[in-house]
Nucleic acid binder design. Structure first.
Lengths: 228, 228
DNA sequence: AAAGTTTTTTCATAATATATTAATTGTAGT
DNA sequence: ACTACAATTAATATATTATGAAAAAACTTT
């Protein structure tokens, strides 16, 4: 996601703060919306679906904690990061804040540079969870999550030992392609390692048991392929 | 960060200078460590991870510039400010110093007041850039406050030793993700440090005892993951 | 500086999961 | 039906982790 597509909602009852913090974030390229109390915050949050909400704890009308709880109940905002603005040393509000569903807090007095770098950090977190691209391989009903070393087949979670996992990963990178035994040994075992001729078969068999017989096709004299 | 938590490493071959400068900084409330040559400086820097290093350019054994280059290569010291002590008018060493990665220089003869105010200025810079990254990590009932080095599990506060804390922090940054042993060593221990193969297991065990057995899943042959 | 405490690391051993082999049976393709 | 290769099964070997206890190192307190 590009920086200028990131929306931040800034909530504080002091106009000064809205202005200075808003200015700093805007000049970083973010889209900033402001609200001056909890009620307004919820309205605007529903409307704009911001990625990050910066929420003052002490506010008239509806305080930050209450607002946070309400915000957390809005389904569209489940991925939104919420951070509190709190006076230094207010331990109570910090703890209550986390119960209410906040992700972080920033202490007043606010130093623009600190704030901006904190915002960047929070949004980095957001970005990371955004692209699970190449760590995940999906074929039909089968999902291979390389990061979590986890397989999901027809919604059912399967845990495979390392070699099996890697063998499956390999075959699944190109469904339909026949992988020669040699190639499999090379990629899964590493070609220095010498293993007997039937080792691959055994692993294939285990995969067949766990994933499904028809998914693995034997090509006699050549190798194996994974089919959809 | 509180003043008394700020560590300064002072490096000079002249005992007089160590004493007078050290005294002035200590009485300002900083934690001062000293070294009398470059080699010792590197050892102590690795050990103490100072926030500021004041380094004499002219020293026996290993001169300041060489030491500075070496220091800059230590990963833990990437945020450390390094400043040179140099005789007035030694233009050459000043230039070379910046190439080597110094942030500032102080000219001899040293006037304590000037030095102290310079140090304060340098550390102010540090504070602003102070890594405000993911201060809070929250997973289910577990809250990790990296700023305060504190864990709260089901409302109960837990104090963990550094290594355990850092290991937990790492795993918790991506629940579900399997962290390879290698990666863990790299991020928690720093891969220059060599520890035996079973060290990670032992730390995981401690975490299991303290946080809960089911939260940590081992993936044989790969590593460990934190699960919700 | 010494004694005590906590944390970190190591090491040996047990427990377990995973990988490989080997022997046997099965089967597709000529 | 023969043959070459693959499938199967169970037994065996190997690799990897868990655990307990204790040494070493790092910190604290006196």
């Amino acid at each position: 996601m590009k920086k200028r597509d990131i929306k931040i909602l800034l909530v504080d009852d002091e106009a000064d703060i809205l202005e200075i913090v808003g200015y700093n974030l805007s000049s970083e390229g973010y889209q900033v919306t402001t609200a001056k109390n909890g009620i307004e915050a919820i309205e605007k949050a529903k409307k704009h679906k911001p990625h990050l909400i910066i929420l003052d704890v002490m506010m008239p009308e509806m305080d930050g904690i209450e607002a946070c709880e309400k915000l957390r109940e809005i389904p569209d905002l489940s991925n939104t990061v919420i951070t509190f603005l709190t006076a230094r040393g207010e331990d109570y509000s910090q703890v209550a804040g986390f119960d209410a569903g906040a992700d972080d807090y920033i202490t007043k007095p606010i130093k623009p540079k600190v704030l901006v770098s904190k915002v960047k950090a929070l949004l980095r977190r957001l970005k990371e969870s955004e692209n699970p691209s190449d760590t995940i391989i999906k074929i039909g009903e089968l999902i291979i999550n390389r990061e979590e070393y986890k397989i999901t087949n027809k919604g059912e979670e399967i845990i495979l030992p390392r070699k099996e996992f890697e063998l499956l990963s390999l075959l699944a990178t190109k469904p339909g392609k026949v992988f020669k035994r040699e190639e499999i040994l090379d990629k899964v075992w590493g070609n220095e390692v010498v293993v007997g001729g039937r080792t691959i078969d055994v692993h294939i068999r285990k995969l067949r048991e766990k994933i499904g017989d028809k998914s693995f096709k034997t090509v006699k004299g050549v190798g194996y392929k994974f089919v959809d």
